[in-house]
Structure formats: C-alpha cells, structure tokens
Computed example of a mutant assay.
Amino acid sequence: MGFEELFMASKGQPITYNGKEIKMIDKINLIFGQVKIKIFFLATDSIWKQGLILKTKGHFEVNNKTAENKVVFWEDTAPAEFELSVNSKDKTLIIYNVWETEDGMLHYWHNGGALHVEVEDDIRTYYCNDGYPDDDFDDLIFKIEIKS
C-alpha cells in the first residue's frame, strides 16, 4: 500500500485508513516553550535503518550538545531510552519517521511512509510505516513522553 497518493489527494492532511488516523507528521502544541521529553525506542521490523526527526523553531539539547531547529535519532545508534530538552520559540514540536535505504540517503513521506499515533495523557506511541509499500505500521515503534 502506497500512502503517498492518498496524502497527495488530501493535500498532506491526515487520512483515515482501516479505521485509524494516519499522518505524515505529528504536530504537538507545547504548553511551555521549554520542555523535557523522554524517547523510548520500542521495536523495529524493517530491512532498512529506522529513525525519527524532531523539528521546532528553536533548539534541542541532548548530552550537553545543542542542535538548531532539527535533530535525527537512529534506532541503531541512539540509546533505547533517553531524555532531551526542547527549547521552542513557537511552542510547536513536529515529529516524523525516517529511514535509510541502500543508497545511504535519508527518506521520508514517500511510497508507504506514514505514522499512526496513540495518545494517553503525556505519552504518545508512534507506529510507523517506512517506504516499503505495506500497511503493517511496525517498521519503527517508539514512545515520546512529555515531561514539561
């Protein structure tokens, strides 16, 4: 299943697929401009390397390092769980999944790429589909806990 055509038809807006809301990105409106979040990598099931991107108008702080506007975490090199700070000028955090194929390039949003998010209090669980045209949403599964 290629979701790319469905997202093009919806002009990038979320769609309903098999009774679930499917998105290209997740956008979180933060209560405060500076928050701590905890990321948990739960599972991967893909032939390709899996990761996630966090974006904001501002910067991220992790392990005493600062990244401006965007940061990428790969499931094969990041710890299984870790914390970081988000310093957002517009109180918005954008999250989406990415993958790397044999070409060594970062890929997202095409072919089968999509995500489904389950929200419970301040914890969001992401079920991600990479660019392989299927609809199992198990290529990358991770959680983000907003700690404020």
Rank of each mutant, 00 (worst) to 15 (best):
L84F: 13
G51A: 06
K91A: 06
Y126E: 10
T125Q: 06
L106Q: 15
L6F: 05
A9I: 15
D76V: 10
K57A: 08
L6P: 05
G104T: 12
N63D: 13
L115D: 09
H110G: 02
S10D: 04
K49A: 11
K23L: 07
Q50D: 01
A43Q: 09
E83C: 05
Y126T: 11
Y17T: 12
D135R: 09
N111D: 14
P14F: 08
K11R: 15
M105F: 15
D138M: 08
C128D: 10
I144H: 05
K57Y: 08
I95K: 00
E102G: 03
D121C: 00
Q13N: 12
D45Y: 02
G58I: 14
K36T: 11
Q13K: 15
V35H: 03
Q50C: 02
K65Q: 14
G104I: 14
M8Q: 15
L52W: 02
K36G: 01
E102N: 03
Q13I: 06
I39H: 06
E5P: 01
G33N: 04
H110R: 08
K70L: 06
K11W: 15
T125G: 05
T77Y: 04
V119F: 01
Q13F: 07
A114N: 07
T101S: 13
L115H: 13
G19R: 15
W109E: 07
F82I: 11
F3E: 13
T16H: 04
E102H: 03
N64M: 14
R124H: 08
T125C: 01
V119G: 01
I39G: 10
L42Q: 13
E83P: 02
N97G: 04
K70M: 15
G104C: 03
V98Y: 02
I37V: 15
N64V: 05
Y132E: 11
H110C: 10
G112Y: 07
N129M: 00
D45L: 00
Q34S: 13
F137N: 13
A67I: 09
K49C: 10
F60M: 01
F137M: 04
E120T: 06
K89M: 07
Y17K: 09
N111P: 02
D121I: 02
D130Y: 06
K49R: 13
F3T: 14
F32L: 12
F82M: 10
N18W: 04
D136W: 12
A114Y: 11
T66F: 08
D135S: 13
L30A: 11
K27H: 15
I94M: 07
S46L: 05
N64D: 09
W74F: 10
D136V: 14
D76E: 14
C128N: 12
H107L: 02
Y96I: 09
